[in-house]
Design a binder for these strands. Structure first.
Lengths: 348, 348
DNA sequence: CTGAAAGCGCTAACAA
DNA sequence: TTGTTAGCGCTTTCAG
């Protein structure tokens, strides 16, 4: 007496299934499925009949059950390590928008500090994501191999891993560093310094390499380098104090990111009484919103974040649909943003 | 000749299932399931036998298939509208960490600008999320009702919706506004201004209300208010110009968030030649990282973001496990952070 | 403690 | 175009 008269809401907290809709509309289960499958062949009247029943019951297809059959979840895992650098909020903005526009959803994972990337990658794979983007410390061979075996496109974002058995999208950091060097050479200042981020960060390494190359090719040298423990304003302050306390104080400093640059400018003015840019030319990297603030007017190198995200999403959605062997690397050019943190050379 | 000799990797891009493991270990499918189900009763030797086979094959349980049975996805939808205010990166940091610590994952949705909240909520519900947090414009009755019917706990974060048929976690913005007013009253300045965000934002409304109350209770009045079109530095610059161009220029301004405050300070110094805080006292809200920068030293009101996230996650995980009727509102106190952007009253 | 069998909600052949 | 019938990969009674 119970089983047949049981309504859906009694059975399970009002979870309406396609079966309920089929019953309501007096059609088969597959008819309902077809109506909710884009591009399936259904007659017009079948469609309205089903839709009416569906609307009446408030039916929503269960995408998880669907995924089980289709082997497609429309989920993309995004693993991030840096939740302190504001550019990553912009990155997330672009990613969510671009992916949403293609019908994909973002499963966001945080691997900063204590979290283990290896473990998180494992977790995200359990959700059968269709693609994975990682912008975090070293991506282990195990992860890349796992993704490859399961045919899940994996792209390293804004990071350049040693091995290249995955897709890579990043800015041309070395070239950006060169541009910074070239620009600083025009300041007339000659005691070059580099305020780096953590020494393991690929961004620090490449930006520094490009910067040094430019300086050295001009017959000059980088006389001082400090590494901030992380890419934040606070860490920048400590680092700036060290840099400016050197016996031979640098007067033209390239900072591996804008937050460090802003810290350097503040410390220089506030604690060392320097007048900027007369006594110190500063160049940043990223072009965060506040780099344009009147307090800084920071001349900096901008990464094409939106384009980078676009490339990443392109790679993903293409490879999701048609898996193919091989990996691609897309390196995008940075552009200099001229403001007022670099000295004019004295008119000779 | 094909079906029986077919290995898993031939059948499907090496997607190892529990069945494969069972076969490998020479045990039943349910045995494998039990081994991967915390708290199921399995003998020790069964466990090692299954684990060996699983490790050998590189088996990872498919959580989606599991969800279909358990009616639990361990997914929490997070819908955000503001990807320009850096505090939301902090919020995401806390959310991902706190949820990950409880075995929950974040499905991140962006509803800024063009995106439709109603539509996104629908999409996220299709993934059978176990809970939903929304920090975005007005949450429609339809959404709340839908969540309620499906017994999905829904919490409005840092936002106070009109209707209260959902959980709410937010800072006590009105009280924060009062504190700001009280503090500004001590500056000796008497021409009070309010630099608001968008007039529809509940934060602007409540912070402004509290501020005005404090000023008026002291027998003073707020003589000027401007609304920035959004909570960004750039919008703040425009807004600051308007505010400072008033015939009767305010000299004690409460800004609805730090970015607006920083813009105001910059415009005041740079375009109006004011000396701060002598000519203008400024108070902010949020305490973003850069509020502490030497260029600003902004006295501000801090929202307890981490605690707010913690409360939200508490509500969610509690209600996920034991659904109960009724909604709770948790309003957390803000704290003032004293720095140097407010004038000392003249010694009388 | 273990295995067999019945689903979770849906899609995808296959016939009709 | 439609309905019937198998599953997708897993959990969960229910016997043994």
């Amino acid at each position: 007496m119970k089983e047949s008269t049981e309504t859906p809401s009694e059975r399970n907290a009002s979870r309406i299934t396609a079966m309920d809709v089929a019953r309501e509309a007096g059609v088969s289960l597959s008819a309902v499925s077809r109506v909710f499958t884009p591009g399936a062949s259904v007659s017009a009247k079948m469609r309205v009949r089903v839709m009416e029943a569906a609307d009446k019951l408030g039916y929503q297809p269960n995408v998880l059950a669907r995924s089980l059959m289709t082997q497609r979840t429309n989920l993309v895992g995004v693993i991030l390590a840096n939740f302190k650098n504001p550019i990553y909020l912009t990155v997330l903005d672009h990613f969510t928008r671009a992916l949403q526009a293609r019908g994909l959803r973002v499963l966001l994972l945080n691997v900063s500090d204590g979290q283990d990337l290896e473990e998180m990658a494992r977790l995200v794979l359990q959700y059968s994501v269709d693609g994975l983007v990682v912008s975090a410390g070293s991506i282990s061979p195990h992860i890349t191999e796992q993704c490859h075996k399961r045919r899940i496109p994996l792209v390293a974002f804004a990071r350049r891993p040693r091995r290249a058995n995955l897709h890579v999208v990043c800015a041309d950091n070395a070239a950006g560093g060169r541009v910074a060097g070239a620009r600083l050479l025009q300041s007339g200042h000659r005691r070059f310094g580099f305020m780096a981020g953590p020494s393991t960060a690929s961004t620090t390494i490449e930006r520094g390499k490009g910067f040094r190359a430019a300086i050295e090719e001009a017959g000059q040298g980088v006389i001082a380098t400090t590494h901030a423990r992380e890419y934040t304003y606070t860490a920048g302050v400590e680092s700036a104090r060290k840099l400016l306390s050197r016996a031979e104080r640098p007067d033209a400093v390239f900072c591996a990111n804008d937050l460090l640059a802003m810290a350097l400018m503040d410390v220089a003015r506030d604690e060392f009484g320097l007048t900027l840019p007369r006594d110190l030319s500063v160049m940043g990297f990223d072009d965060v919103d506040l780099a344009a603030a009147a307090s800084y007017r920071l001349t900096t190198i901008r990464q094409p974040l939106e384009a980078m995200v676009q490339e990443t999403v392109d790679i993903l959605s293409h490879r999701i649909n048609t898996w193919s062997e091989g990996w691609e690397t897309r390196q995008l050019a940075c552009t200099a943003v001229e403001r007022a943190s670099i000295a004019e050379p004295p008119p000779d």
